[in-house]
C-alpha cells in the first residue's frame, strides 16, 4: 500500500476508535434512539452478540510492568452491511444488543454512503452528552479542590 493509502487507513482507524470510545460509554438505549433517526442499510449479523470476560491489567507503580488486576464483563458482536463493510462492537458489561448496535455504527462509519450521516446523527450527539457529563463531574470535583492560603504576618 502506498503512503497515501496508509494515512487514509490510519485516519479511518482513528475515526472508528474515537467513535467506539463514545459508543462504549453510552447506554444501549441511547444508541438505539439515535440510530432510530438514521436510514439504515441492509446488514447481517456476522457474530451474534456474546458476553465474556477480559482480564483488566494495571501497571506496577502506575507506570511499570503489567499485572493482572481483575476481570470485567464485556460483550461483543460483528455485523456486515450488504455493501460489504464489516463492523465490530465491543463494550464493557453484558448488554449484547448494545455491542451489536456499536458494530452497526462501526460498519456505517466505514461506508462512504453512510459515514457522514452516522457521524452527525449518532456519534456527534452522543459525544456531546458524554462531554457534558464529564464536564459536570469535573466541575463537581473542582469545587472540592483545596485552596491553601497563608496567613501573612508582619509587614509584607
Amino acid at each position: 500500500m502506498d503512503v497515501h493509502g496508509n494515512s487514509q487507513t490510519s485516519a479511518m482507524q482513528a475515526r472508528r476508535r474515537a467513535a467506539m470510545a463514545v459508543l462504549a460509554r453510552a447506554s444501549g438505549k441511547e444508541i438505539a434512539a439515535r440510530l432510530g433517526a438514521v436510514a439504515l442499510p441492509a446488514y447481517e449479523s456476522l457474530r451474534e452478540p456474546e458476553s465474556g470476560l477480559v482480564m483488566v491489567r494495571g501497571r506496577i507503580g502506575g507506570d511499570g510492568a503489567a499485572f493482572n488486576l481483575g476481570e470485567a464483563t464485556v460483550s461483543r458482536a460483528a455485523v456486515r452491511l450488504a455493501s460489504g463493510e464489516v463492523g465490530f462492537g465491543y463494550a464493557l458489561g453484558r448488554d449484547g444488543e448494545k455491542a451489536k448496535l456499536i458494530a452497526l455504527c462501526d460498519a456505517l462509519l466505514q461506508s462512504d454512503e453512510h459515514a457522514d450521516g452516522a457521524e452527525a446523527n449518532v456519534i456527534a450527539p452522543l459525544r456531546e452528552r458524554l462531554i457534558a457529563r464529564r464536564n459536570a463531574r469535573a466541575a463537581e470535583a473542582a469545587a472540592t479542590r483545596v485552596d491553601f492560603y497563608t496567613m501573612v504576618r508582619g509587614e509584607g
Binding site: L53, V54, R59, G62, E71, T73, A141, T144
Partner: peptide
Amino acid sequence: FRATLPRFGVTEPVDTGQMQVRR
C-alpha cells in the same frame, strides 16, 4: 459466576496517569 464466562483476552494496561480524577 465468573467461572461460567469465557475469557476473550487481556486488556491493554490501564493508564492511571490519564484518569479523570474525582478525588
